[in-house]
Design a protein around this nucleic acid. Structure first.
Lengths: 154, 154
DNA sequence: TATTGTTATACTCTATAACTATA
DNA sequence: TATAGTTATAGAGTATAACAATA
């Protein structure tokens, strides 16, 4: 009965789906698959990261990740480098062309989103950010506790 | 620059991903794929709908949908029936076993979500619902205008 | 002529598990 | 022993386009 959260969850799912429908158009036009774009978007504006970290952030399991990264490497969008500190590990980052792709595809979605939000005031944004931040906190707390990763080496 | 919405979009994406990570666990345990669960969840609590409508709601294209529905039919979770009114069209609905699956898997996700929201007050929910509703409105308005579907026949 | 759903193709993703190499 | 990434396998989803039947 008191399942008040049902409505919120449904709304969240609807927002998700609507947003995916929207961004999906641009992603497909870019010639990237969903998984590939996910990687590009995750690596964008970062110095790069390990497979492990990338897998954790994108929900792509390591076995799949090898293939996805391979295809992106063939397209010249990402590059890998052995981690000097832990020789089992790779460091993956966008190539300049990968950056370019990120900077082309991402803003197309962003620009479209911008139009959507045309009527939002600063206050509206502030409320949206606050609400989503709280929601994110709650959702992240619900995850199976993440093993605290060691950071001895960077 | 004035790209205030960037932060909101990132937050929304993070909420989406967090929620998918969470619900994905239960979905996989049920032996359903993501697409299959999407169908089950969409058909749940409805009298059924056509392939067309189902495809629109789940973002699964018609070619793929044929295969997904086929597998669900083999599992005995959905059934199809010719639409008397438009003989090109099928009507898809959950079987009793499909309903049972829906009623088993869905609540597991829901229950977990419920724990997440334990600390939410009525006011918190009210604000969350309001904010998400507005967001949904904005997102849906951003979609390429949906062709108004004819409903002469049901 | 347009729409609903099917079929076919080629590719990509997915889960899973066994494996190599480093730690 | 545990972890990072690879490989292998089998199945499922994906985009796309040509096709049949019906509207």
């Amino acid at each position: 009965m008191g399942e008040r959260y049902l409505k919120s969850i449904r709304l969240l799912a609807e927002c998700m789906q609507g947003y995916e429908r929207l961004s999906g158009e641009y992603v497909r036009r870019s010639g990237l698959t969903h998984a590939q774009f996910d990687i590009i978007a995750t690596l964008g504006n970062t110095p790069g990261m390990s497979y492990k970290e990338l897998g954790d952030k994108t929900l792509i399991t390591k076995g799949t990740l090898t293939g996805v990264i391979e295809r992106l490497e063939q397209k010249g969008l990402v590059e890998r480098q052995r981690n000097d500190c832990d020789k089992r590990s790779f460091f993956v980052r966008l190539t300049p062309e990968g950056e370019r792709t990120f900077c082309t595809v991402f803003p197309e979605v962003i620009a479209h989103s911008g139009k959507m939000f045309a009527a939002y005031t600063d206050d509206d944004f502030a409320r949206l950010e606050k609400t989503l931040s709280e929601l994110k906190t709650v959702i992240m707390a619900g995850q199976t506790e993440p093993a605290p990763s060691r950071r001895d080496c960077d």
